[in-house]
Design a protein around this nucleic acid. Structure first.
Lengths: 334, 334
DNA sequence: TTGGACTTTGCATTCGCAGTCATTTCCGTT
DNA sequence: AACGGAAATGACTGCGAATGCAAAGTCCAA
């Protein structure tokens, strides 16, 4: 009755009067065990508080049922949702999550060492990996799915939200609404989505014959305000449309525009974001942004990974999801 | 040169011309190996891309170097920060994180089964556990530290932020500033901190001879607005001080007060929160709240857990941290 | 009653590494 | 040159469960 640690299949076997093999079989469904025997074993296991040792199982079956999730900055408002979705979906498939959160990009190498050591069955990565690192996954036969980035120079399975489509919708809307002086706040140079989105916006503006001022931010709230101020100077205050590559910076910019600079949003200045994080929909902001279809994206990432764990030879595939344009009240569109 | 999967210590041993034991020792510092031999082994390991199999190590040493982190709702704006801190601190100590995120409270039992199976060295839990479940940890000899809750009926190691102190500061400030009609938005009845904070506020108000209206919310943005509306009705619009047991609800209430109901915050209505999440400090809100000392709390949780992993017999201890009062612009204090 | 076709069950082995114990090597001493 | 003690090394076993294989049991038809 009292659940104790260190109960092994032998203990259960002894109590049920069978061999260890029988116990093992009783816990693998589809195995050849007489119903009555299985019942006795299950009962004995329950009485002893026995749980199969996943470590030992992993050693012999070469399946740890562990998946590594590597995320660079967890605190980015957007990732918690992704992380929660991923872990819950994976659990539903009997897979456990080994979480790695990077304090600095330079920790990747060390983290990968740990990933190899734990013989994970696969990995979902939302962090920058070098070509060598990507190759290491394939050499070691560890299925990999990239989240919101693609393999640079190497074909790798990945799911992303379409930056081009998203920014195009925003830019087109802004242009058609008559904005003329554009500014863009990008992300750090080493961020994949940051560059993607910024380039998408720049290209679409170029298509309309418009050139925008560009500054970089760090994806955080403060960067939004700081970026806005810089852009106001660069444009001698003429800025009337600000494109931020994520919501957090857009929110920072909205606050700074309204409360520090004293510009009315959106009548004097339109501001757009990207991601569709929950604060974007708060009354105070009602951000005009592109919402990533997180549920579909995580669902796809998990499905792709599990597929590749089952059949390691499936070729790489990129899945690109269109985001949903949220027409909020932070920008005048169309 | 090419890193391949399935490289074992025997492979390394063969290449270095030594026995498997030597390889094992070369990777455990303090073991008896000649420096030259170790160098040869390390070189061979590097060449083969060998990483010790943590699964096999765990099986034999009975130390998985895994710690389970169980969190009920990851999306609560406050936990990502906690999670990031915990994982980073733990990895500094060579411990990996097995993450469990609960979609529903009822999943706990299933999650615990997995926790036992993986033979984790310990667990940090920010979710509600029944007495039986708490006892199960101790029966199985798995060290446990509760985060922001205490063991109900069972002594368990825990770290919390002091609700009494925090709410007292808020209540005293509000009372002294002359507020007279109080409302409280609590959390779901099954939330420990929710009840703690609500009771703390109620008690302190009682101390001042004040009785407050009370409604429950779900800790989310929407609950703030909904709760405020209900309280306005209950008080026939006389409400002038609203105490929310977390920031998210306070933010929702601020937005609703300003944009829906048309009450000026804080001149007509003071609103307070709890936690000190990052949006609380955004220009639009500048919440008056109590900030949890997350760094110190996570640091304490990790330290307590590691201590107990080393010495399983250390007796339970509760550590209660005082929060920091953030006097923002959402409430008139003092 | 016997044979054949399954179904159950147990034995023995294996996974990769740590650690015990016995053996060998090395080095300083006398 | 011989010896003693320490350092270095290797053979071997065991952690806990899965599984191939062979043995034993079951059931039905002839």
């Amino acid at each position: 009755m009292s659940e104790k640690a260190g109960v092994t299949s032998y203990d259960v076997a002894r109590r049920a009067g069978v061999s260890q093999s029988a116990v093992s079989r009783a816990f693998r469904k589809g195995a050849s065990v007489a119903p009555a025997t299985r019942a006795r074993i299950v009962e004995a296991a329950r009485a002893l508080g026995y749980e199969p040792n996943a470590i030992a199982q992993g050693l012999i079956t070469k399946r740890s049922n562990l998946v590594a999730i590597i995320i660079s900055n967890l605190t980015n408002l957007y990732y918690p949702e992704v992380l929660a979705e991923l872990t819950q979906r994976l659990s539903q498939h009997g897979v456990r999550v080994l979480l790695f959160s990077l304090a600095a990009e330079s920790d990747v190498e060390e983290v990968l060492g740990q990933v190899w050591r734990y013989r994970v069955d696969g990995a979902i990565v939302a962090a920058r990996l070098s070509t060598e690192q990507l190759v290491a996954f394939s050499n070691r036969g560890v299925p990999l799915v990239l989240y919101n980035r693609v393999g640079e120079g190497v074909p790798v399975a990945s799911v992303c939200c379409d930056s081009d489509l998203g920014e195009r919708a925003l830019v087109d809307g802004l242009v058609q609404a008559g904005h003329t002086c554009f500014g863009i706040i990008g992300g750090p140079a080493d961020s994949y989505v940051g560059e993607e989105r910024a380039n998408a916006a720049i290209n679409r503006l170029a298509y309309h014959g418009i050139k925008a001022e560009f500054v970089r931010g760090q994806f955080d709230y403060e960067s939004g305000g700081a970026g806005l101020k810089t852009l106001m100077e660069l444009t001698q205050g003429k800025l009337d449309a600000l494109i931020c590559v994520n919501d957090l910076m857009a929110i920072g910019a909205v606050d700074t525009a309204r409360n520090i600079i004293g510009k009315k949003v959106p009548s004097e200045l339109s501001i757009t974001g990207f991601d569709g994080v929950s604060p974007a929909t708060w009354e105070a902001y009602q951000l005009t942004t592109v919402r990533q279809p997180v549920r579909r994206m995580t669902q796809a990432a998990v499905a792709m990974l599990l597929e590749r764990i089952e059949s390691p030879d499936i070729s790489p595939e990129q899945r690109l999801f269109a985001g949903e344009l949220l027409s909020g009240r932070s920008a005048r569109l169309q």
